[in-house]
Amino acid sequence: MIKEFDYKELEEATQGFSPTHLIGKGSHGLVYKGALQDGKLVAIKKPSPGLQILRDNTKIDNEISMLSSLPQNPNIISFLGTSHDSAMNKVLVMELMPNGSLHDLLHVSTMPPTWPQRLEMAMQIARAVQFLHEEKPLVVHRDIKSANILFDSEWNAKLADFGLAVRKNENIDHSRVDSLSQPAGTIGYLDPCYTTPSKLSTKNDVFSFGVVLLEVLSTSKVIDLSRTRTHIVEWAIPLIKKDRIKEVCDSRIELPMCMEGTIRHILRVAARCVSSREDLRPSMQQIIIDIDKHRAIDRVRVPIWSSLLESVVLIRRGRRSASRFRGAN
Score class of each variant (00 low, 15 high):
192 P>D: 08
193 C>E: 14
194 Y>E: 05
194 Y>C: 07
195 T>Y: 05
195 T>S: 14
195 T>R: 15
196 T>H: 08
196 T>N: 09
196 T>Q: 13
197 P>Y: 04
197 P>H: 07
198 S>L: 12
198 S>V: 14
199 K>L: 12
199 K>N: 13
199 K>D: 15
200 L>A: 07
200 L>K: 01
201 S>P: 00
201 S>I: 09
202 T>N: 06
202 T>H: 06
202 T>L: 08
203 K>D: 04
203 K>W: 01
204 N>S: 15
204 N>M: 12
204 N>F: 05
205 D>E: 09
207 F>R: 11
207 F>W: 07
208 S>W: 02
208 S>I: 14
208 S>M: 11
208 S>E: 06
209 F>M: 10
209 F>A: 08
209 F>D: 00
210 G>S: 12
211 V>F: 02
211 V>R: 06
213 L>P: 01
214 L>Y: 00
214 L>Q: 02
215 E>I: 14
217 L>M: 12
219 T>L: 08
219 T>V: 08
220 S>A: 15
220 S>W: 07
220 S>D: 14
221 K>G: 02
221 K>P: 03
221 K>I: 03
222 V>S: 05
224 D>H: 08
224 D>E: 09
225 L>C: 12
225 L>M: 13
227 R>A: 04
228 T>N: 08
228 T>W: 01
228 T>K: 11
228 T>R: 10
228 T>F: 02
231 H>Y: 05
232 I>E: 00
232 I>L: 07
232 I>P: 00
233 V>I: 14
234 E>Y: 07
234 E>G: 07
235 W>E: 02
235 W>S: 04
236 A>I: 08
238 P>R: 11
238 P>S: 12
238 P>G: 13
240 I>W: 02
240 I>L: 06
240 I>T: 06
241 K>A: 15
242 K>S: 13
244 R>S: 12
244 R>Q: 14
245 I>F: 10
246 K>M: 09
247 E>P: 04
248 V>E: 00
249 C>T: 13
249 C>N: 06
249 C>P: 05
249 C>K: 03
250 D>C: 10
250 D>G: 05
252 R>D: 12
254 E>K: 09
254 E>V: 12
255 L>A: 10
256 P>T: 09
257 M>Y: 13
259 M>I: 12
259 M>N: 02
260 E>P: 04
261 G>D: 13
261 G>M: 06
262 T>R: 04
262 T>K: 06
263 I>F: 00
263 I>K: 00
264 R>V: 02
264 R>D: 08
265 H>Q: 09
266 I>Q: 05
266 I>Y: 05
267 L>C: 10
269 V>S: 02
269 V>E: 01
269 V>W: 00
270 A>W: 01
270 A>K: 03
270 A>D: 00
271 A>H: 01
272 R>I: 05
272 R>D: 15
272 R>F: 07
274 V>F: 07
274 V>E: 08
274 V>T: 10
276 S>L: 11
276 S>Q: 11
